[in-house]
Design a binder for these strands. Structure first.
Ligand SMILES: [Mn+2]
Ligand SMILES: [Mn+2]
Ligand SMILES: [Zn+2]
Ligand SMILES: [Zn+2]
Lengths: 140, 140
DNA sequence: CTGAAAGTGATAATCATTCTCATAATACAG
DNA sequence: CTGTATTATGAGAATGATTATCACTTTCAG
């Protein structure tokens, strides 16, 4: 029963809570070193997994497979995005179209909801005006 | 202007459309070989990127960073999930709580919506009864 | 035809994440 | 307090999906 957090784990959580932007594991590890702390990359990943299970932080996986983490508690960080499948840009939305009802329903299913992700995919205005397909594979 | 699709591209799209389950790029490549076809893995990835931009297929990125692809058109495949952050299991939901209004709003933003993803994260019933934190890192 | 442009596949390279394992810190029974 | 079992840690290797290379083939407009 490891109910108590390690000093390392506390510092990582603190760093996430105090940061206004979502951060990747690599980025977190880098910032930790900047602060003069010595926490191994493996420990960062282990702690992220732990905090995720404890419901302290949320994870967003980008289309290129990298994970970004941020605190769950702050409403400030509850953002959804319009993601362009062409240029890859993400445009944050300032609304959450989910009613409380649906979250209640999830709980009624015996599922304990920590957080949700909602992402839209399509073409941004700029990319709608281009000949997309031709540029898509132009690099090769 | 590559408006016309290649024979390879057509076969890959056909394979996705005819399959009832979402498939990874690796899986697609394997099945292609099973069918006696000779399409390189690189071409599979290139075609997936192309079809994605054309709005023919949708992509779902799992928490471990692997991408799965499926046809957009079939309502049959429009699923959202309850994802357990502990055991990793995904429980499909049979409803979509998004109103048409929100999609309309996205369009009013000059963003052309192809599809959306909506995922809930938390603990499934089985995992709520365990001492999670202790098992989380037990493997190491 | 003909040559430029686009498509292809084998292979190497990338890189975030996970695994290994020896060591350090901690918890706890006696 | 003291020895011992358990858990945490970090350096580095391994993993594996995805991407980049590059020589070669196909397509097609003129
Ligand atoms: Mn929301
Ligand atoms: Mn939906
Ligand atoms: Zn775009
Ligand atoms: Zn579970």
């Amino acid at each position: 029963m490891s109910n108590k957090r390690t000093k390392n784990q506390e510092q990582i959580l603190k760093l996430i809570n105090n940061n206004s932007e979502e951060m990747s594991a690599q980025n977190l590890h880098f910032q930790i070193q900047q602060h003069g702390l010595r926490i191994g990359l493996a420990t960062v990943y282990r702690t992220l997994k732990l905090l995720k299970i404890e419901g302290e932080i949320q994870e967003r996986v980008t289309p290129d497979g990298e994970s970004f983490y941020s605190t769950i508690n702050s409403v400030y960080h509850h953002y959804h995005h319009l993601n362009c499948v062409n240029c890859g840009k993400s445009y944050p939305m300032n609304i959450c179209p989910l009613s409380q009802k649906i979250t209640d329903w999830c709980h009624s299913q015996k599922f304990k909801v920590y957080y949700h992700t909602l992402e839209f995919f399509g073409l941004c205005a700029a990319c709608q005006d281009q000949d997309i397909a031709s540029e898509c594979l132009s690099a090769n």
